Measured scan of single mutants.
Amino acid sequence: EVYKVKIKIERVLPNGEKVEEEITIEVEGMSEEELLALARELAAEPGVRIKEIEIEKLPP
């Protein structure tokens, strides 16, 4: 199964400015739980906050 994972994050820059970013990846052969863990890892940097995680199962 192939999933499209869209992660919206908010990053706080050293000057205090907040910037929103969106990361989209396609992943194959992982469960939804593994995808959530991967998304959290991607956003685990200091000053980064996850705003939204969207997981979509793509048709075969």
Rank of each mutant, 00 (worst) to 15 (best):
L13F: 14
I9R: 02
E54W: 11
E22P: 01
E33P: 05
I55A: 01
P59W: 10
I53E: 00
E33W: 11
I23H: 05
V5F: 03
E56K: 09
M30F: 08
P14H: 13
E22V: 15
V27S: 07
L58F: 06
K6I: 15
K6Y: 08
V19W: 05
K4I: 12
I53L: 03
P60T: 09
P59R: 12
E32H: 12
V27H: 04
A44L: 14
L58G: 06
K8V: 13
E20F: 03
P59I: 15
V48G: 02
S31A: 11
E1F: 09
L13T: 12
K57L: 06
P14D: 12
S31N: 07
V19C: 05
I50A: 00
G29P: 06
R40P: 02
K6G: 01
E45K: 06
V27E: 04
L35S: 08
E20W: 02
K51M: 11
I53W: 04
I7P: 00
E28H: 08
E41D: 14
I25K: 05
E26G: 05
E21H: 04
K57P: 06
I23C: 11
E22Y: 09
L58C: 15
E52T: 13
V19G: 03
I50H: 00
I7T: 01
G47C: 12
I55W: 10
I50C: 02
P14L: 10
E52N: 06
A43G: 10
L35T: 10
T24D: 08
V19A: 06
R40G: 07
Y3Q: 02
L38T: 06
E32P: 15
K57V: 12
I55V: 05
A44Y: 05
P59V: 12
E45V: 05
E32Q: 12
Y3P: 01
I53H: 00
E41I: 10
E17M: 08
P59F: 14
L35G: 13
I9W: 15
K4V: 11
E45P: 03
E22C: 15
I55E: 00
E54T: 15
R11I: 04
L38I: 15
L38C: 14
I7A: 01
A39T: 07
K4Y: 04
I53R: 00
E33S: 15
E34K: 06
E28N: 05
K8H: 11
P46Q: 13
E34P: 03
E22A: 10
P59G: 15
E1Y: 13
S31E: 10
P46E: 07
K18D: 02
E26C: 06
R49C: 11
E28Y: 06
L38H: 07
I55L: 09
S31T: 04
E34Y: 10
V2C: 09
I25C: 13
K8A: 04
I7R: 00
E33F: 14
G16K: 02
R40K: 12
E21Q: 12
E22L: 06
L58M: 14
E26A: 08
I7Q: 00
E54R: 14
I25H: 03
G16E: 03
K4F: 05
E10P: 00
E33I: 09
K8G: 02
V27D: 02
P14R: 03
A37W: 12
P46A: 13
V27A: 07
A43S: 13
R40T: 15
V2N: 11
T24M: 14
L13C: 04
K8F: 10
K4L: 12
E56P: 02
I53K: 00
R49N: 10
I7D: 00
R40M: 09
E22K: 06
A44G: 11
R49P: 01
E33G: 05
K8R: 08
V19T: 08
A37T: 09
V48C: 01
E26D: 07
L42W: 12
I9A: 02
V5W: 03
G47W: 05
E17K: 11
E45C: 15
K18H: 15
K18A: 06
I23Y: 12
V12Q: 13
I50Q: 00
K18N: 15
E1T: 13
I25T: 03
I7K: 00
L38P: 02
V2A: 14
E33D: 15
I25M: 13
R49L: 15
K51L: 15
I25N: 02
L38G: 02
I25Q: 03
K51S: 05
R40N: 13
E33K: 06
V5M: 15
E22I: 07
E22T: 11
E21N: 06
E1L: 11
A39N: 01
G29F: 05
E52P: 00
Y3E: 00
L58A: 12
E34S: 06
P59H: 08
E32T: 15
E17I: 14
V12F: 13
K4H: 05
L42C: 09
A43Y: 12
A37H: 08
E41V: 10
T24Y: 11
E1P: 12
K57N: 04
V19P: 01
S31W: 11
G16T: 01
L13Y: 14
K4M: 09
V12H: 14
L38R: 11
K18M: 15
E10S: 03
R11W: 04
I53Q: 00
E45N: 03
P60Y: 02
E26V: 14
K6A: 04
E54P: 00
L35K: 01
L58H: 05
L42P: 01
R49S: 06
E21I: 05
R49M: 10
L35I: 14
E20S: 04
E52L: 07
K6T: 08
E28V: 13
R40W: 15
P14F: 05
L35Q: 02
V48R: 01
R40F: 11
E56I: 12
E10W: 02
V19K: 10
E28F: 08
A39R: 02
R11H: 02
I7V: 12
I9Q: 01
P59K: 08
E41F: 14
L58Y: 12
E34R: 08
V48Y: 04
E56R: 05
I55T: 02
G29I: 07
I7W: 02
K18C: 09
L13N: 09
E33N: 09
E34C: 10
E28G: 11
R49D: 15
A37C: 15
E10R: 01
A39S: 04
L13P: 01
E26Y: 04
I50K: 00
S31M: 10
A43K: 02
L13V: 04
V27K: 08
V2F: 09
R11A: 01
E28C: 08
I53P: 00
P59E: 10
G47L: 02
A37N: 12
E56D: 07
M30I: 12
E33R: 14
L58R: 08
I9L: 10
K8P: 00
P59N: 09
P46M: 10
A37P: 02
V48L: 08
I9K: 01
E52W: 13
K51W: 08
A39W: 08
K4W: 06
V12I: 10
I23M: 13
V5I: 11
A43M: 11
V5A: 05
I23R: 05
I9Y: 10
P46T: 09
K4D: 01
I50Y: 01
R11V: 03
N15K: 02
P46N: 05
R49T: 13
I23E: 01
E52Q: 09
E28S: 04
V12M: 04
V5L: 14
G47I: 01
E34F: 13
P60N: 09
P14M: 15
E32Y: 13
K8W: 10
E54A: 06
N15W: 07
V48W: 09
R11L: 02
P46I: 06
G16W: 02
K6R: 15
E34A: 14
L36H: 03
A43D: 07
L36N: 07
L35R: 02
E56M: 13
E28L: 08
E1M: 13
R11E: 00
V19D: 04
E54I: 12
V27P: 01
R11P: 00
E22N: 13
E32N: 13
E33Y: 10
V48N: 03
I55S: 01
E41H: 08
V19M: 08
K18I: 15
E28I: 14
L38K: 11
L36D: 07
L13H: 05
E54D: 07
E54V: 12
V27R: 07
E56T: 15
I23D: 00
G16L: 05
A43N: 08
L38Y: 12
K6E: 01
V12K: 08
E56W: 07
G47E: 08
I53A: 00
K57T: 08
E26Q: 13
A39I: 08
K8C: 06
K57H: 07
A43P: 02
I55R: 02
